[in-house]
Design a protein around this nucleic acid. Structure first.
Lengths: 200, 200
DNA sequence: CTTTTTAGCTATCAAATGATACCCATATCA
DNA sequence: TGATATGGGTATCATTTGATAGCTAAAAAG
């Protein structure tokens, strides 16, 4: 990454500290005041330089500053107990909390944690109560574990596309595979990225 | 915490998602537009309610919204493939990377991730390659899963103290328990807090 | 039956804010 | 020598933005 001038570094640091303290980027005038310059032009120039060098991304509107390179700052993801049919992202009222995870864990946007219910995947090492990190997506590859919506219930299953139907395979010798023909009240919510289990 | 009305939840969630996506809280009008109301009053009322109930803190100035119970302190933990005998904390040269986790996940200090090797706990849903979050401590309670040092090898086992010896029990019907009398080249590294598995 | 809470509306204002135009000085680089 | 990047300034403008006043309505609580 291109090196910064002292002044640019100062601005970048200030933006960063604002985000840490207020979870809100500063205004041009706040930056100006902090680095001791009058007007807003200078601050804006520094931001332009920071953007050109790739340290910052700017949006339209007030306080439209975002840092591009915040490595390893955990991303808070919602934890839900249930998933609603048709909804690509978790319903607001279902969110029971937030868990921050390493950004390297997630892919794309809209990831969330789903609390696993039942023993259908017990032989794949996924137990009742585990947290499943889900990346929302409407399709899946063969063999992947997906969250699928069947009869208004969200379940974790292995996904296999076969001829004219889809087979959702549990990993529990007491349970049978579920065969669904596509587009009949069946949706893939997303695919499984990680599972987390809590002890103690 | 006081329960929220549906509308208030909706606002809170929107603020939260804005912070996730833009690292910047929304304006009153952005909130209004999102919840489908005209003007700015209604959004402000909801924010007032959210503040009164303690979900939100407001500052002066534009976009002066901050979530109160937002996990924000990043806790980077080392990931190791092996553990050395005698060492309470992972040796520097064994660290293969860092993963940041939610502060609520860890207890005490010195926690680290250990990459699980082998199938000895497969029936407890802990598979080869899983990451085990370990809290270092020299003792354990009966039934807990611990990382124990046996013959220079770190292994994950159920811990049982029995009469004059300690039994380390795998969860794999092809493996037998290990009986060790204490203080003979046997150490407990720490106890298992969480396991994480990666898919894809 | 009144009060409180929740939820909404229109309209308006002063302050905050990003953006722009135009200007200056210094250093580096071609 | 002239172009380019850096760093700074004043002034101005159109929007954005938070805030307030005044109004309505339904539901719950007392």
């Amino acid at each position: 990454m291109e090196p910064l001038t002292e002044r640019q570094q100062q601005v970048l640091n200030y933006v960063s500290s604002c985000l840490d303290q207020n979870s809100c980027p500063p205004t041009l005038r706040e930056i100006s005041e902090h680095i001791g310059t009058a007007g807003t032009v200078t601050a804006m120039r520094h931001l332009e330089a920071l953007e050109k060098k790739g340290y910052v991304q700017r949006r339209e509107g007030s306080r439209g500053i975002a840092l591009t390179n915040r490595p390893n700052i955990p991303v808070p993801l919602p934890v839900v107990g249930t998933v609603r049919a048709g909804a690509p992202e978790p319903a607001i009222e279902d969110i029971s909390g937030y868990v921050s995870v390493d950004p390297s864990w997630i892919k794309g946007t809209g990831c969330f944690f789903l609390q696993v219910k039942g023993d259908s995947m017990i032989e794949a090492g996924i137990l009742d109560g585990d947290l499943a990190l889900i990346q929302p997506q409407p399709i899946a590859d063969n063999g992947q574990i997906v969250v699928a919506m069947i009869d208004g219930e969200a379940t974790l299953k292995h996904f296999y596309r076969e001829e004219d139907h889809v087979r959702l395979e549990p990993r529990n010798r007491n349970m049978a595979s579920i065969i669904v023909s596509e587009a009949e009240g069946f949706t893939i919510i997303g695919k499984l990225l990680k599972t987390v289990r809590n002890y103690s």
